[in-house]
Design a binder for these strands. Structure first.
Lengths: 156, 156
DNA sequence: CCAATCTCAGTTAGACTGAGATCC
DNA sequence: CGGATCTCAGTCGAACTGAGATTG
């Protein structure tokens, strides 16, 4: 996970060399993406960590916290608090795994699944807002290129 | 400015919905870009803030700290320490502005300009490494799309 | 005994806030 | 006086570390 609450710079006054540096562009674009996604999810009283956990449970079924941590990128320590929030609102259940009682099995509840459907729409809206100046083919291409970069550096 | 020292997740185990989410891809790509750029600059005992200041001085000439803060995105408070480091190594000079003694005028020294030439090459290498899986046209397109996003959200 | 899991307390590094001192 | 500038001390939220308790 990552996130940072920073004011993005005004590109109009940033020197060309910095403004066109890919690593810096990624950072600036991420600031906007983070701000927009966070704002949309906050409308629903949710944060990006909670959303990531719900998505991961829907996609992969019930899982231990260690596996959820791997799949979401949320640190094992921070996951504890995220799950506390989700269990408080009955979006997930957390129970000891009968097969290995070191583990908890975290399960998506029907209420969590319904909630997730609404969150999906909010997140989609956030992406639309973020990518507003791009055409659909451009959006697809951006995702493709970013995925290439991320996947390339994940190995090694 | 932004930066975050996080371990990127392994995309192989991340659910499709998260893995292809533009806002998340930006974050993951930025983590790699930040890690690589930082590593390259550290070889030269520099950080990204110091580099941003030197570039901005070369591009726009001598400037006050307030203007440097605007152009680099470095917070006015943090700029103090960055300039202390750069003046210690005689890459910049910081003197009271005779025309308005509230201000400091920060100037790039010849030594700073020479140093910056070396740093440019290191930063270029970092970008190459980050964009390694992309062809040159793809790199250009990525920069173009990111710049569109950043510029769009900087207004308003 | 060693390794994995969950949890909690505490640390770290980065961005931000507020206020004081100085000057226009 | 209001407002800008530089500086410092302190705060805040996010990510991480380490260790204890439990179980395999």
């Amino acid at each position: 996970m990552t996130e940072r609450h920073t004011d993005p710079a005004d590109p109009a006054v940033v020197p060309e060399r910095l403004r066109t540096l890919p690593s810096r562009l990624l950072g600036q674009a991420m600031i906007h993406g983070g701000r927009i996604s966070r704002a949309r999810l906050e409308e629903a009283g949710m944060d990006r960590w909670g959303y990531a956990v719900l998505v991961t449970l829907r996609d992969g079924g019930p899982a231990s916290q260690a596996r959820l941590s791997e799949r979401t990128g949320i640190h094992r320590s921070d996951l504890v608090g995220v799950l506390n929030g989700l269990t408080d609102r009955a979006y997930v259940e957390r129970e000891p795994d009968p097969a290995d009682r070191r583990r908890n099995v975290v399960t998506l509840t029907p209420a969590g699944r319904r909630r997730l459907g609404e969150l999906d729409r909010l997140v989609d809206r956030a992406q639309d807002e973020l990518l507003d100046p791009l055409t659909q083919p451009e959006r697809d291409e951006l995702v493709r290129l970013l995925a290439l970069i991320v996947e390339h550096h994940a190995r090694g």
